[in-house]
């Protein structure tokens, strides 16, 4: 499953091996929502040409979050643009829905722990640490210069840069954030534009009056 859905891979990368989030939930939600839309755009299922998002074709993808977004966009009569859909999906609990999908697929395992031996809390650990490695394999090889990234890996590079979670790669390279950002923006105008949208939304969320 991993390697198939951009938002699944991003969710795995955006949490450490103990399930602890590496970025703020509001930012992660926006990036996950962006990942869903980017997947659809790169697959040719959604077109952004001319401004409003438009669904191309009618078949379902099999992923509840992705299909939910496709239904919303297909039913839209006001011609909302990509940032609107990213924000909408982020508000529709994309974070928890993605996590539930990964749990259902057996890729994440719920684990209850206790703070100070008393206060219980729930985390979701990867079922296998190799999942994390596989999820970031494309980004890792691109960042190390071993392989040119495809559009999907370039987008994942950009989303990791936006979330400032490059430490999850354990590469120890200097200016890694800038490198990931450059890989995304240098890939194609489409990836550059989509990552730019998510970046702006994450920035706006950080200075929002109310969360």
């Amino acid at each position: 499953m991993t390697g198939q859905r951009l938002h699944h891979d991003l969710f795995l990368i955006a949490h450490d091996k103990s399930g602890k989030p590496l970025a703020h939930r509001s930012a992660t939600s926006l990036a996950l929502a962006g990942a869903v839309l980017i997947d659809l755009v790169l697959a040719g299922r959604v077109s952004l040409t001319g401004g409003p998002a438009v669904v191309v074709g009618r078949s379902a993808t099999g992923d509840a979050v992705t299909d939910g977004l496709l239904t919303l966009i297909a039913g839209d009569r006001l011609g909302h643009d990509a940032p609107y859909w990213i924000r909408t999906l982020a508000e529709q609990d994309v974070h928890d829905r993605t996590r539930e999908a990964l749990v259902a697929a057996g890729l994440l395992v719920p684990v209850t722990r206790r703070r100070l031996g008393m206060l219980p809390y729930l985390r979701h650990e990867p079922a296998d640490i190799a999942l994390l490695v596989r999820a970031s394999a494309g980004v890792r090889s691109a960042a190390e210069g071993r392989k040119s990234p495809d559009a999907r890996s370039a987008a994942l590079c950009g989303l990791m840069a936006v979330l400032q979670i490059e430490r999850a790669l354990y590469l120890g390279l200097p200016s890694l954030n800038e490198r990931l950002r450059a890989l995304a923006t240098g890939h194609s105008p489409l990836v550059k534009e989509l990552i730019g949208m998510v970046d702006t939304l994450v920035g706006e969320a950080a200075v929002a009056v109310y969360r």
Binding site: H24, V202, A205, A206, R211
Partner: peptide
């Protein structure tokens, strides 16, 4: 500060945010 930095009228470092806690 964010708006002015974003419009390149103040140094760019003021427009940067920390995503870990989602704060400027």
């Amino acid at each position: 500060l964010y708006a002015m930095a974003r419009d390149r009228q103040l140094p760019a470092f003021l427009g940067r945010i920390s995503v870990r806690n989602s704060v400027p």
